[in-house]
């Protein structure tokens, strides 16, 4: 546990001068534009959330997940840092989990900023703050964040396997683009890590009642949890044995 916190604090410094977290700001800013032009009926908070979630959950969240997961390995790939850091008195799982947590933290930041931007757009358009369906909002936003975690674990696995910053990103991009088709399938959609954020944020409502969107939240979350454990275990096992 101490090792893990030490590794986390060490990762913190490496993020220091990078502008990577700016990406977590750009995403909600673009979603604000969509929210402002969506022309929602006054007071339709859920409608606004859905409208703004479309690009955010379908495209930005999976992309950001891939970028953050690759980014936490980037400096080790570049400067030959794996040899150095793995010669230190720190266990490999502790280091791996620290990196995963940094990526998850950056995603949480993006999701929080997104939530704030939804509320601000609503207020700007004169929606009544007291009418926000908090419980639904929280389920969608937390669910969306949780649904990024299997992908984060998978992308971190790939990022430690390939000594490159760009290659995992290309892979991520290639698998993100078909999202729009894959959510139509109730059989494949829930198991497709790149589509899970979108399903979690937009499922079973009046506008989206086709394909994989029809699944109950609970069964989607079970799939999310199971795939997270699967990818995390595979990644940890690989990293623990990886020759450096």
């Amino acid at each position: 546990m101490n090792q893990w916190i030490a590794a986390l604090r060490s990762e913190r410094i490496k993020l220091g001068h990078s502008r990577i977290l700016l990406l977590a700001v750009i995403d909600p800013l673009l979603c604000v534009l969509i929210g402002l032009t969506a022309g929602m009926e006054k007071g339709d908070w859920m409608g606004l959330l859905l409208a703004m979630s479309l690009i955010h959950a379908m495209f930005f969240l999976p992309m950001l997940t891939g970028i953050f997961s690759a980014f936490v390995c980037r400096y080790e790939h570049e400067g030959g840092g794996w040899k150095q850091i793995l010669s230190l008195p720190i266990s490999r799982p502790a280091l791996y989990l620290a990196k995963l947590l940094v990526a998850a933290g950056a995603l949480a930041l993006a999701q929080i900023l997104f939530a704030i931007s939804v509320v601000l757009v609503g207020l700007y358009q004169g929606f009544d703050l007291s009418l926000i369906p908090w419980e639904l909002f929280a389920t969608r936003l937390l669910g969306g964040f949780a649904a990024c975690l299997p992908l984060a674990a998978l992308q971190l696995f790939v990022s430690t396997m390939w000594s490159s910053f760009a290659a995992p990103l290309v892979l991520n991009m290639v698998f993100t683009v078909p999202n729009i088709l894959i959510v139509n399938s109730a059989t494949v959609g829930p198991y497709y890590p790149w589509a899970q954020p979108m399903l979690a944020m937009m499922q079973s409502n009046i506008d989206y009642n086709f394909g994989a969107f029809n699944l109950p939240t609970q069964s989607l979350m079970i799939t999310v949890g199971a795939s997270f454990l699967l990818f995390l275990t595979a990644g940890l096992m690989y990293f623990n044995r990886k020759p450096v």
Binding site: S10, I13, K14, G81
Partner: peptide, 18 residues
């Protein structure tokens, strides 16, 4: 091995924390 975007003190700090 080094982190190119950091200065020497910061580089050592990443190791010092571990």
């Amino acid at each position: 091995s080094y982190y190119g975007h950091l200065n020497a003190i910061e580089n050592l700090e990443t190791i010092r924390r571990i």
